[in-house]
Design a binder for these strands. Structure first.
Length: 242
DNA sequence: GCGACAG
DNA sequence: ATCTTGTCGC
């Protein structure tokens, strides 16, 4: 297993600077989302977790990607990237906040990422183009989104046993699934990102949750990006007003 | 117009 | 996301 030094995450010169511009980018890229592929078979190849942590006071963002062996869930490779926050948090525009740092971290990898698991949504999104779909279109990689909250969507409670699922609904349209990954514990919300079917996305999510509610991939990436943020924060100028 | 809203 | 102590449970 190899780890890298944090890579510098640069904000592209043409990155949208306001909300209307960002929405226009989503409306433009949405057409490139591929939804007619099944995606990699669960338990084969690699599965990569992605997560990002912030210090908005110091304007620092840290992203982490962790490549796991899909069969054993052992860590194959890790990478991080640190940079300036690229966009404020706006519901529906999360991708513009996270993607530059995530791309920088992904670019450090020697291993094939395989299936990329994002913390958030794919096509379950106000304009049908959430973080997971956006990252998938930009990289060409198969992606799914596993979120902790239902966002603006509705769902009927899935059965109590792990593995139970219910449709995540945007009105009457199924945009994802509320999937129970642990007995009697709040479900996670799975949606397709790019080049993966919903059934397969749920199957992968279950394989990634043998012990905890959240996928092992995102748990690993979460711990790593927080550690990277702590380091970056430690050797940074104090927040304004201090 | 008001409230809700992935992370 | 982040701010934060103790506490219930396996």
């Amino acid at each position: 297993m190899t780890t890298h030094r944090p890579a510098p995450a640069h904000i592209p010169a043409d990155w949208p600077v306001d909300e209307p511009a960002a929405r226009a980018v989503q409306d433009e890229l949405r057409a490139r989302t591929v939804l007619d592929e099944t995606g990699p078979a669960p338990g084969t190849g690699h599965v990569t977790g992605v997560d990002v942590a912030y210090d908005d006071e110091r304007d620092i963002v840290a992203a982490a990607v962790v490549v796991l062996d899909a069969a054993t869930l052992d860590v194959v490779e890790e990478a991080t990237a640190v940079g300036r926050v690229a966009f404020p948090y706006v519901p529906g525009l999360l991708a513009f906040r996270e993607i530059p740092a995530v791309l920088a971290a992904l670019g450090q990898l020697a291993a094939d990422p395989g299936l990329v698991v994002c913390d958030g949504y794919g096509i379950a999104h106000p304009r049908g183009f959430g973080l997971a779909s956006h990252l998938g279109v930009l990289t060409g990689l198969p992606t799914i989104g596993v979120a902790k909250n239902p966002f603006t969507f509705t769902y009927e409670a899935p059965g109590a046993p792990r593995g139970s699922a219910a449709s995540l609904l945007d009105g009457a349209r199924e945009v994802g699934r509320a999937l129970r990954t642990r007995d009697d514990v709040k479900p996670v919300f799975v949606s397709v990102g790019h080049r993966v079917s919903l059934d397969n996305a749920c199957a992968h999510t279950l394989r990634l949750t043998p012990r905890y509610r959240l996928p092992e991939s995102t748990r690993r990436a979460d711990a790593l990006c927080r550690a990277a943020l702590r380091e970056a924060t430690a050797s940074a100028p104090p927040p304004p007003g201090t």
